[in-house]
Design a protein around this nucleic acid. Structure first.
Lengths: 338, 338
DNA sequence: CTGTTAGCGCCTTCAC
DNA sequence: GTGAAGGCGCTAACAG
């Protein structure tokens, strides 16, 4: 039966003693590193089962200088985009015997720094890191001690730092092209305050598409707000105060688009008749809103898997020496909101 | 600058040598466990900074028999309910210096067993475990080696196993009472096929409320379907074929309620005028549907925080000896659909 | 105020 | 086919 108090874990020494062999033999029987007599093996097996022995990975890690653990540091686990990344990562790392350690930082620089340091002290074998700026300086400490790093959403690689990202410029372009093709005339963009990172690149793509279509670019139609549902709602309110309100609004991600929808609904606006709304990421909720949300798919699960493969390559030494960069082609997912 | 190849981590020995002191002094200077001369301290600090020393938590964990790590094993990280649990858990554990290790199992019994065993070998200080059946046998192995366990959604405690759960029976009761109070006469319930677990308990509460109100219980109004949006849609279709159709429908969770809304909309029924719809959980999208969804809040974030406090209590020994059970009172979140 | 030393549990080289 | 012993990096008696 279950125990109340704390019980000492049984160690390899206990098993060896009970089985009347040396710990060497137990160790080799577990790892299969060298042959063990059938009779001995059976006896050891039995004792392991009797005692409920579970090897201590701390000790093994200390000895092997390897923890079979990979860290995933993300801004917000409650943004559905990141659980999908986590899922993809676990999909490829799990079968390889690696554990994923997930931490949310709330996009707070101090928390991000603390998280990276924490992971270094835990001697993770690899680090996947995401924040809205995709700032490589945040992970420099890890790269410097030789931990392979993959930066999600980054644009530029560094020695020791690989990058996985959606092609955000292309995403902004195809989204704007889609709206232009649907006949929308005044297309606004709700983005973040930072001038770098995915949000900024999506705006770049949007401007590119306007230019290609011979449309004027109106700075007043690009509004910068906190990247959150509330931020999206506020930005939408601001857009609705313009003399000429937009007939379509691109939002830097789906969560922000939810906020824009909140405001539209609160104002009694019909979507997409009065104003079209479009997001980025294609999180699950995008298919559940009313109206369902037209968006740009960034295939987060596949990005997570790509991160995993990159990390695995670094860990088993099969990766090329220089830093790698994997870009995901975005695609418009047409639904009802635009 | 960042390094390409693997570099050896610097250890406390390196710091001691470089600073010309013993490792004991470095250790105590780090932990503050005993006074160190100001001059010595300064020198050691400097060396630590120069060398970029990060203590190795594996070694420390091995020595201290404590990892400052807590495992969270959940069925599906992409189900929005669980990231909120994770968030709450991290909220209380983080400030206490504990890391949370999250793993998804897809509700696969084999994966669940593997995850628990994995966490034991990693010598986590505590384990939070959730699956849809809330089966305590899944965590027995951890409890037996003395790891404090909290089971999410469980009904019965065991020695070494605490429980945190929403009070599902009460939830079913207040939901039904709310609808009765609003004047609805024929209240249906869409639930899952299983006769145990949260869905079943919610039906129990619903029946209780009917009885208390002196209303008859009509078995034909309880329909069992797959717990999903499609399942909800199918169940609603079935309800609409009854001779006497319901004027209100309780759905075992919000996703199922979305399906019910789909069918109502497809049939041209007005909600709540023709038929009211109500869910459980209060996930984010409940506020996004048209009409917005009246539901029962289960406060997942707070449940996560409760798990964290329970675990902390076990770890610092301040908890009572016997197993504890924390029930969350559900609350009706009134919106437009009922 | 500081140092020496004995493990924590495991893997692995070397020896039999 | 099997063992003995060293050491991964750290903390905490025990000694000055």
């Amino acid at each position: 039966m279950a125990q109340q108090g704390r019980r000492r874990h049984v160690s390899i020494t206990d098993v060896a003693a009970q089985a009347g062999v040396s710990i060497t033999t137990v160790s080799h029987m577990l790892s299969g590193q060298r042959p063990v007599a059938a009779a001995t093996a059976a006896r050891v097996q039995q004792v392991i089962a009797d005692l409920g022995y579970e090897p201590n990975r701390l000790a093994r890690g200390l000895r092997l200088q390897r923890t079979d653990t990979v860290a995933l540091v993300i801004p917000d686990i409650t943004n559905p985009f990141y659980p999908l990344i986590a899922r993809g990562l676990q999909n490829v790392l799990g079968p390889a015997g690696l554990q994923v350690l997930v931490t949310s930082t709330d996009a707070d620089p101090a928390a991000e720094e603390a998280a990276v340091q924490q992971m270094i002290t835990r001697r993770v074998d690899g680090l996947a890191f995401a924040d809205y700026q995709a700032d490589h300086r945040r992970v420099a400490a890890a790269a410097e001690v030789g931990i392979p790093v993959v930066l999600l959403g980054g644009r530029t690689t560094r020695p020791g730092i690989d990058v996985v990202s959606s092609d955000d410029v292309a995403g902004g372009t195809i989204a704007a092209e889609y709206l232009i093709g649907r006949g929308y005339q005044r297309i606004a963009f709700i983005t973040g305050a930072e001038r770098v990172g995915s949000p900024a690149n999506r705006v770049l793509g949007y401007r590119h598409a306007l230019r290609e279509a011979g449309r004027p670019y109106a700075p007043s139609l690009v509004v910068r707000e906190e990247i959150s549902r509330d931020g999206g709602a506020r930005a939408m309110q601001r857009l609705l105060t313009l003399r000429q309100t937009p007939d379509a609004v691109l939002c830097t991600n789906d969560v922000v688009a939810l906020g824009a929808l909140d405001t539209a609904k609160a104002r009694g606006l019909r979507v997409p008749e009065d104003v079209a709304v479009m997001g980025f990421d294609d999180i699950d909720i995008a298919a559940l809103t009313t109206p369902t949300l037209t968006t740009v798919s960034n295939r987060p699960r596949e990005q997570g898997e790509a991160i995993g493969r990159l990390l695995l390559g670094r860990l088993n030494g099969s990766a090329p020496r220089g830093p790698q960069r994997i870009l995901f082609d975005p695609a418009v997912v047409q639904r009802d909101s635009a």
